[in-house]
Amino acid sequence: MVAAGLLRTRSALGIPDFELLVDRWSQQVQLPWDPMDASSVADAVCLLLSDLARPISGEVLHVDGGFHAMATCLGSGSPQ
């Protein structure tokens, strides 16, 4: 499974406080991340579909610039 990072898509329009999430993402992401560019996610999917990934099974691949490894909160208060 690929856990894709924050991307501006049609479905993202339905996420409450999406712009706040984009702001927090840009402050806390460890690697460069452009929510308008899905190529990083597409590259990871191509890797998983290639023979290079044949021994990989039952894993979640986070393609989000490292954001999943950081604690954050959307409102005031401490990270959750």
Rank of each mutant, 00 (worst) to 15 (best):
residue 34 D to E: 07
residue 25 W to I: 00
residue 54 R to E: 14
residue 47 L to F: 15
residue 66 G to K: 04
residue 28 Q to S: 01
residue 30 Q to G: 13
residue 77 G to Q: 08
residue 3 A to M: 10
residue 57 S to H: 14
residue 75 G to L: 10
residue 51 D to F: 00
residue 20 L to A: 15
residue 21 L to G: 10
residue 15 I to N: 14
residue 63 V to S: 05
residue 75 G to C: 05
residue 16 P to L: 06
residue 27 Q to S: 10
residue 63 V to K: 06
residue 74 L to P: 04
residue 8 R to N: 05
residue 20 L to S: 10
residue 54 R to A: 12
residue 42 A to H: 06
residue 11 S to W: 11
residue 4 A to I: 05
residue 1 M to S: 08
residue 27 Q to V: 02
residue 56 I to F: 14
residue 30 Q to Y: 08
residue 31 L to S: 08
residue 16 P to K: 06
residue 24 R to N: 06
residue 52 L to V: 11
residue 21 L to S: 12
residue 76 S to H: 09
residue 39 S to M: 03
residue 60 V to A: 06
residue 71 A to Y: 10
residue 27 Q to A: 10
residue 69 A to D: 09
residue 19 E to C: 06
residue 6 L to G: 00
residue 19 E to A: 12
residue 56 I to K: 01
residue 6 L to W: 03
residue 75 G to K: 11
residue 26 S to N: 12
residue 24 R to T: 09
residue 19 E to L: 11
residue 37 D to L: 06
residue 60 V to D: 10
residue 12 A to M: 00
residue 75 G to Q: 13
residue 23 D to Y: 03
residue 41 V to K: 02
residue 42 A to K: 05
residue 22 V to D: 04
residue 23 D to E: 13
residue 32 P to V: 05
residue 76 S to R: 07
residue 61 L to P: 01
residue 8 R to F: 07
residue 59 E to W: 13
residue 78 S to H: 15
residue 33 W to D: 00
residue 78 S to L: 15
residue 25 W to Q: 09
residue 33 W to Q: 01
residue 11 S to G: 11
residue 16 P to S: 08
residue 66 G to M: 04
residue 41 V to Y: 06
residue 29 V to I: 10
residue 42 A to S: 09
residue 21 L to R: 14
residue 29 V to P: 00
